[in-house]
Write a protein that binds this DNA or RNA. Structure first.
Lengths: 137, 137
DNA sequence: CTAATACCAACCTAAATGGTAGGTATTGGA
DNA sequence: TCCAATACCTACCATTTAGGTTGGTATTAG
């Protein structure tokens, strides 16, 4: 599995915040209830999004979170890369990994490299605005 | 990480067998040495490929493995689906999973579904023959 | 002052990953 | 006829990751 609950939940939260864009700070408690995700677990996922300025948190009563930019300018690739760490399909390509010694004459590496490119391009081609276009029942 | 060592090693073995296509049965010991992978671990990965008729094993002295078809007709998507179980990016899409109750009005599901399609199409568009075209140093 | 909120760190369980160990069955060739 | 080489099989194991829970502290509106 490429995308864990971290990335999936983060995307759902961000989509929820996008639907409530312009309505001020939204308490995560509300989002957690709407999305049926443990609030406590969400609190462990969100910091990376706050620190990288995708969302803004406001402490205290009537506090909450809001998108740091309009939905149309937030790419879901950014959300997933932050929460998952990266979007590499194989260890050989992930940032932590030093270059594999076989890289020079590995027949399979190009397969992963191109898929990596494809993956990032796909998720970077979608913004939160794209996700909230459709009317839901 | 989407693809574990199982899938990566399997692809390397299959590529190795493709390079030796037409030379009869190749002992896995040789392949393991060339690819620098534990023979014992490979022996645990290969059965699923044998059972699904991607390769053929011959026991006994002068035995080994060979591709069950020509390299051009073996899609790497098949290799990866068998060794990894599936190529779904998220649990919601994997075969074992029953349909998620939220599926009907989930704003994020289409993102995964389309990526799933894209992934299978990419890996099914590549055959072993494509991987052994280039001359290596 | 208090209730609601974000923010933070330690802990936990179960499953998956990436193997190893120790065999058995089969077969070609000396 | 026997031996070495091979595929094939099963049980076990250590480490890491996934997916949380628990129990707080800091901040702020009313």
């Amino acid at each position: 599995m490429m995308i864990s609950t971290k990335g999936r939940y983060a995307l759902r939260v961000m989509t929820d915040l996008a639907e409530n864009y312009g309505k001020g700070y939204i308490p995560m408690k509300e989002v957690a209830e709407r999305q049926n995700i443990s609030l406590k677990y969400l609190e462990r996922i969100l910091p990376v999004l706050t620190k990288n300025r995708l969302i803004e948190g406001l402490q205290g009563k009537r506090g909450g979170y809001r998108l740091a930019a309009e939905p149309g300018s937030i790419r879901i690739g950014d959300i997933l890369r932050l929460t998952e760490g990266h979007l590499a399909p194989v260890a050989c390509l992930s940032c932590e990994m030093n270059t594999c010694e076989r890289a020079g004459n590995c027949r399979t590496l190009p397969v992963w490299t191109e898929f990596y490119r494809l993956t990032n391009a796909y998720f970077d081609g979608i913004t939160l605005a794209d996700l909230i276009l459709e009317e839901l029942v």
